[in-house]
């Protein structure tokens, strides 16, 4: 372990010769994932994900607002990722770091491109009142691969959301909410992300830890849905790679996705 800190690349190579990683995983093996929903009672929906040591919590707060002029019949979903200074010494307190912003945008793109939430369901009264779901994600412990953990946390938290019943008074036009009656709303699909990274231009490893992220180049994230379709593919940097390698990642992502979907189903029941 000492050697891993002093000569990370060299010592990592010796591990890879045996096709194993320092934490005992195989190259394409992901870390153990724990999903826990509804633990925050002040949030309208919440989920805590532990991916190995990496820990991400997502809390959803539902509020009422006036819809935008472009989409009068649609609600709004705003994800926000926070890599707080608490989770790792890599981050400073203050506004979100670049990495957090990139994850925020990733989650936003993902929500827009897949049909997990139909924003029309969030409409209370067209042109007058819609729900806005603030999905705040906080990384509590950062040991690499915050992206997969945050996708899992976000989707599980959205599935966990229960919003109170709202009625709009016809005469006064004022809304009235009944906090006693809360209903879950329909989420469709269960996207699941799998991230890979490339070590030394030739070894693809799944679910990197923080140390592995530091010594590898380029990352590949594949999001699959329950029909094993690809919803989102993001490959950033790294050396040029033949397509066959990429297909390996896709194949592994599909496998991993179906494993993770069992978690979603387990917490939903």
């Amino acid at each position: 372990m000492e050697l891993l800190n002093l000569q990370p690349v060299e010592s990592y190579k010796t591990f890879l010769k045996e096709n194993i990683r320092p934490d005992g995983r195989e190259l394409m093996e992901t870390r153990q994932t724990v999903l826990n929903v509804g633990s925050i009672s002040t949030a309208d929906g919440s989920a805590l994900v532990k991916l190995g040591e990496t820990m991400v919590i997502c809390g959803v707060k539902a509020e009422l607002t006036i819809p935008s002029a472009e989409d009068p019949g649609k609600g709004i979903v705003v994800p926000n990722m926070e890599m707080s200074a608490l989770c790792s010494s890599h981050f400073k307190p203050g506004p979100p770091s670049e990495q957090a912003q990139v994850i925020t945008k990733f989650l936003d793109n993902l929500l827009k491109s897949c049909t997990v939430i139909d924003t029309a369901d969030l409409c209370v009264m067209k042109d007058k009142l819609v729900w806005v779901l603030y999905c705040d994600l906080i990384c509590l412990n950062y040991d690499g691969n915050a992206l997969d953990a945050s996708v899992l946390a976000l989707i599980a938290a959205l599935q966990n959301v229960k919003i109170p019943e709202v009625t709009v008074d016809d005469e006064s036009g004022l809304p009235h909410t009944n906090m006693e009656v809360k209903k879950a709303f329909a989420t469709r699909g269960m996207p699941c992300a799998t991230t890979f990274t490339v070590f030394d231009g030739s070894h693809i490893i799944a679910d990197p830890t923080l140390k592995e992220e530091d010594i590898t180049e380029g990352n590949i994230t594949v999001v699959t849905d329950e029909h094993d379709n690809l919803i989102y593919v993001q490959r950033q940097g790294g050396l040029a790679m033949p397509e066959a390698e990429m297909q390996k990642c896709v194949k592994r992502a599909v496998e991993h996705g179906s494993e993770m979907r069992k978690l979603y189903l387990a917490v939903a029941s």
Partner: peptide, 29 residues
């Protein structure tokens, strides 16, 4: 779905990719 691919000009291997929206892996290929 929209996909952007980045290739290297020598070997035409992919350097980066960004694909958003549901598609099967055949469609992706």
């Amino acid at each position: 779905a929209i996909a952007t691919f980045v290739f290297d000009s020598a070997q035409y291997d992919s350097i980066s990719a960004y694909a958003c929206g549901p598609m099967t892996s055949d469609e992706y290929r």
